[in-house]
Nucleic acid binder design. Structure first.
Length: 572
RNA sequence: GAGGGAGUAGCUCAGUAGGUAGAGCAAUGCACUUUUAAUGCAUAGGUCCUGGGUUCGAGCCCCAGCUCCCUCACCA
């Protein structure tokens, strides 16, 4: 079947060459973005006035053919470029009947058109009988012939695996997917802009390391042939970035990949993008402000305007529907009302299909709209859940949360042991801090997942945080926070530990009952040496970019926000 | 790693109690110079994930395996 399609298309390829055209085109520098073409359309200039022919505007656009309706001597098609999509009309020229169409050879070329081809047209801009802005072409260029069929025009591609594996088809067939990746770019650019504005500089540190550290995860290993050494792919840039603080770079950040040899899930990809930053003379309180600003302003400037725009479109459609209904109620002919309904559906198709998708329905959008009037930034996470990003976000200490949801004082070793036994988490000889952590995961995290606001969880048990400074008046507490949004850990930050003696001790220590791979205690001698030279007190912050993108684009799977997520290779 | 669901035409999906495999889109041909998920008529397209088994007969039942999705565990 596929072979047959290819054969047919190869025949067309030859036919195109026989006509004297190059099926793979060449430079085409004059096309305007489709969005701009649609915007510049002036209805007044498309209409004839008096005896005169209309003073048509001209337009020039290029894109991929995504819909094709061949009516014999007239072809309607929709083409899509990066900015949008629009209708073009290719007609056989009729002398004496303006506007001009295509003469012999270009018309023959047009008749060889297939879905998926990339084309350019020049012509006049006018509305069709049904009111769609269209370029009526008098010049037609084939820029690239496609040899394989496009995905189904209405449903697109749905299978996550196929969409990831052949992302080009996903992007070509699913505008929602394209939108997600465009928003991803916008969010990252926005982060960069804000950080630059705060005086941070962007640096790149090694991905290949002979000692890994900065997180609790198993690394990927690899080998350098010329030096004949084994290397690790980094699990975090933390220790490199802190060396830069020692060297005198006071505000640094890096947005780049980390690699962790762990399981894959809808929230985990083995390589993922992390924004990590360090600011000298700051602490974790400053990091909270930065986290709030980065995420909140991304939500407000990138996601929210788009959602409010969707809402307005839907409102408009609903309003129009009410008017149409009034009209048709007066009318006596039912078939007319049918026609009007069909026409209405077509005109507002975007809004209706949107309302039908589980991602954005009208009720959810209306909630967002209402909240925006009170100056609240509410955005959906995974389906219909709304999260309120309005600042400041609540701050809760680990101690409070343990008290509130687990009903235990985490400082009381005996009480913790009893609670752990109660929950079936106890193992003899397991360190107190690990028991606390296990109870937290079991009793507190599910509660955090229910909250409709981002939450800062702060002041962790010190044993769990070997790279974090301890509280001056209570060395059992580490000055660390994690930010949970809808149950996902989105940010992690510390007031950085800059005491080389404690750091060395922490690298050497190992908590009783810790499994292999659970520890972030891998000795990095040179890092301790760096600290001995003196690192300014500092705050450090890491934000998982993929997860922020998931939250701000209402995407449930991390594989839908990473262009090429890791997949098992296809077997032939 | 454990549990649940799925795999049928290029894509989106039906499929009866076990009886020779279906639709829409895409493709091919014909008609149509204002269509818009164009329409009408006709044609072609399948190792029903793989391998075994039960049966006169398996897309369907049984066993094993592969892959994907979801949940949990590890983690961000």
């Amino acid at each position: 079947m596929l072979e047959k399609v290819q054969e047919d298309r190869l025949k067309k390829l030859q036919a195109i060459r026989d006509l004297g055209y190059d099926p793979y085109g060449g430079r085409y520098g004059t096309a305007e973005p489709i969005e701009a073409v649609l915007k510049k359309f002036d209805p007044a200039r498309a209409e004839a006035h008096g005896d005169k022919q209309p003073d048509y505007q001209r337009a020039d656009a290029a894109g991929r053919v995504i819909l094709l309706r061949d009516m014999g001597k007239m072809i309607f098609a929709h083409i899509r470029d990066q900015s949008g999509q629009m209708q073009i009309c290719l007609r056989k020229d009729q002398p004496g009947k303006p506007p001009a169409g295509l003469v012999e050879k270009p018309w023959a070329l047009a008749k060889l058109l297939d879905l998926g081809d990339i084309v350019a047209v020049k012509g006049v801009l006018a509305k069709t009988r049904t009111g769609e802005i269209t370029i009526f072409a008098d010049d037609f260029t084939l820029l690239c012939k496609s040899l394989l069929p496009m995905p189904e025009k209405y449903h697109g591609l749905t299978d996550i695996e196929l969409r990831s594996r052949q992302r080009y088809l996903d992007l070509m067939a699913n505008p929602d997917s394209m939108r997600i990746f465009q928003k991803r770019v916008a969010i990252i650019e926005h982060f960069r802009g804000l950080l630059k504005g705060r005086g941070f500089v962007e640096v790149e540190t090694p991905m290949l390391q002979s000692v890994y550290g900065g997180a609790a995860a198993r690394p990927f290993t690899t080998h350098h042939n010329a030096l004949d050494i084994d290397l690790f792919m980094r699990i975090s840039p933390e220790l490199s970035l802190k060396r830069l603080l020692v060297g005198g770079m006071e505000k640094v950040f890096e947005i780049n990949r980390n690699f962790r040899n762990e399981g894959i899930s809808p929230r985990h990809n083995p390589e993922f993008t992390m924004m990590e930053l360090y600011q000298a003379y700051a602490d974790y309180e400053v990091m909270m402000e930065i986290t709030e600003e980065l995420v909140y302003s991304s939500a407000k400037n990138i996601s929210l305007p788009y959602l409010l725009d969707l809402y307005e479109k839907q409102e408009e459609a609903e309003e129009k529907l009410r008017e149409d209904k009034k009209d048709t109620e007066k009318s006596e002919h039912k078939d007319i009302s049918q026609q009007k309904w069909q026409k209405h559906l077509k005109e507002h198709e975007d809004a209706y299909t949107l309302a039908e998708t589980p991602i954005y329905n009208i009720e959810m959008l209306s909630d967002i709209y209402e909240a925006s009037k009170e100056n609240k930034t509410k955005l959906p996470f995974v389906g219909e859940r709304l999260i309120d990003y309005t600042r400041p976000w609540p701050r809760k200490t680990y101690l409070e949360l343990m008290q509130e949801y687990a009903g235990v004082d985490m400082r009381d070793e005996a009480a913790v042991a009893i609670k752990a036994k109660e929950l079936g988490l106890y193992a003899s000889g397991k360190a107190h801090a690990l028991l606390v952590n296990n109870i937290f995961e079991m009793k507190v995290e599910p509660e955090l997942a229910k909250m409709d606001r981002p939450v800062f969880v702060k002041d962790y048990p010190a044993e769990l945080c070997p790279l974090t400074r301890r509280k001056a008046d209570d060395p059992s507490i580490a000055l660390r926070f994690e930010c949970y949004i809808a149950g996902m850990e989105v940010a992690n930050a510390y007031t950085e530990l800059n005491d080389p003696a404690i750091q060395e001790e922490n690298f050497n220590g190992q908590l009783a009952g810790e499994k292999e791979g659970e520890t972030m205690r891998v000795m990095d001698e040179d890092f301790v040496t760096a600290l001995r030279h003196g690192m300014p007190p500092a705050g450090g912050l890491g934000i998982g970019i993929d997860r922020v993108v998931m939250l701000l684009t209402n995407t449930a799977s991390i594989r839908d926000v990473i262009l090429f997520p890791l997949l098992r290779p296809e077997e032939k």
